[in-house]
């Protein structure tokens, strides 16, 4: 949408929800994810100045995904559970032809490398691992029975391993998209199919819980964002994904580059998380590295097929080897 359309609709929407006619200062689209549009704005609403974020689907007429439809409610449930997230303010209505909602803007950075290396973030690096463990435990404790609206989120087939669908999905993508063979990925797929976990827990999984989707400042974690991949599944999936090598951004510790495994597990359990099953964490970490490896191939394919002819996209194809290297290490550690 263009700026004028967003401003006109937002004016109407804020008036309806607050009774004030907003005076806007600075309405601008933020760069980033191709998935959704994110706009930042300041609006004077009577005596209150609202620093807000407007999130919307990019195209009208296309059916939105369940987590997108529910993003407002997911944030609200997470906040009510005590997780550190941006405050959701109002869910969208018919004001725009696309699904949207408004949340309070959280000041802070999201770039992974700056957290790992920034001198000003020394204190943040100390406390963020515990904050991430606690917030994740609180997300995983959200009671399914209290949220019938979340039943439309993707869920594993009853009785089947919650991992099977994920592994099959990325194997299919790999076979469709990769122009070249990758024997290391074959070893990894083989291992994953032979070690599919089948835990009894089915919790609300964030689905993309990793450095890059956390807003932070010098005082620590400020907001967990990007809930577009939320689903029902194995709680260990989020923990394993957080440990994937690429999300360490060069940091020398496994959890988000700044935390060790055991303290994270202890913090997570102490905050009421599910019992940590180290084998399952390893399964999901190994799967996560493979998943990221497949994604590097799909991104490079955007270049090969002419959809995005930038040197950046092309170069991502040369990062696949990093995931192969990590997969070999993890396979060896798993005892081959």
């Amino acid at each position: 949408m263009d700026t004028a359309t967003v401003e006109a609709g937002l004016r109407k929407f804020l008036h309806k929800n607050t009774g004030h006619d907003p005076a806007f200062a600075g309405l601008a689209r933020l760069s980033g994810g191709a998935g959704r549009e994110t706009w930042t704005f300041d609006a004077q609403l009577g005596d209150e100045k609202l620093e807000g974020i407007f999130r919307c689907d990019p195209v009208a007429g296309i059916e939105s995904s369940a987590p997108r439809i529910l993003e407002f409610h997911l944030l609200k449930a997470a906040m009510d559970a005590g997780a550190i997230v941006p405050e959701p303010l109002w869910d969208g209505d018919e004001t725009f032809p696309v699904k949207f909602f408004v949340m309070r803007r959280v000041p802070g950075e999201a770039l992974g490398g700056r957290l790992i290396r920034g001198e000003q973030y020394a204190h943040a690096r100390e406390i963020i691992p515990t904050q991430l463990a606690q917030s994740l435990a609180r997300i995983h404790r959200i009671d399914r029975a209290e949220h019938p609206e979340f039943e439309i989120l993707p869920a594993p087939v009853e009785g089947a391993s919650p991992a099977r669908h994920e592994v099959e999905n990325y194997e299919r993508i790999f076979r469709e998209v990769s122009p070249d063979p990758h024997p290391v990925f074959e070893l990894a797929f083989r291992w994953l199919y032979q070690h599919l976990p089948n835990p009894p827990e089915r919790v609300l999984v964030h689905g993309d819980y990793r450095l890059g989707n956390f807003l932070y400042g010098e005082d620590g974690l400020r907001g967990i964002i990007d809930w577009e991949l939320a689903h029902w599944g194995d709680p260990m999936e989020d923990i394993g994904w957080l440990a994937v090598k690429s999300w360490r951004f060069g940091g020398d510790k496994p959890m988000a580059g700044i935390g060790d495994y055991e303290p994270f597990f202890a913090d997570y359990e102490a905050a009421g998380g599910c019992p940590v099953d180290r084998d399952r964490v390893r399964f999901w970490e190994l799967f996560g590295n493979l998943k990221w490896g497949v994604i590097t191939i799909t991104q490079a394919a955007n270049y090969f097929f002419g959809r995005n002819k930038t040197v950046e996209m092309a170069s991502i194809g040369r990062r696949t080897a990093e995931t192969e290297w990590e997969l070999l290490r993890l396979l060896e550690q798993a005892g081959i």
Binding site: P183, L187, A321, E322, W325, L328, L331
Partner: peptide, 21 residues
């Protein structure tokens, strides 16, 4: 043997694509 072979091959790939790693 397969794992040993792949370790050498992937290491060679990294020598080109990511020498620090």
């Amino acid at each position: 043997q397969v794992v040993n072979h792949l370790r050498k091959v992937i290491h060679d790939k990294l020598v080109v694509s990511n020498p620090a790693l």
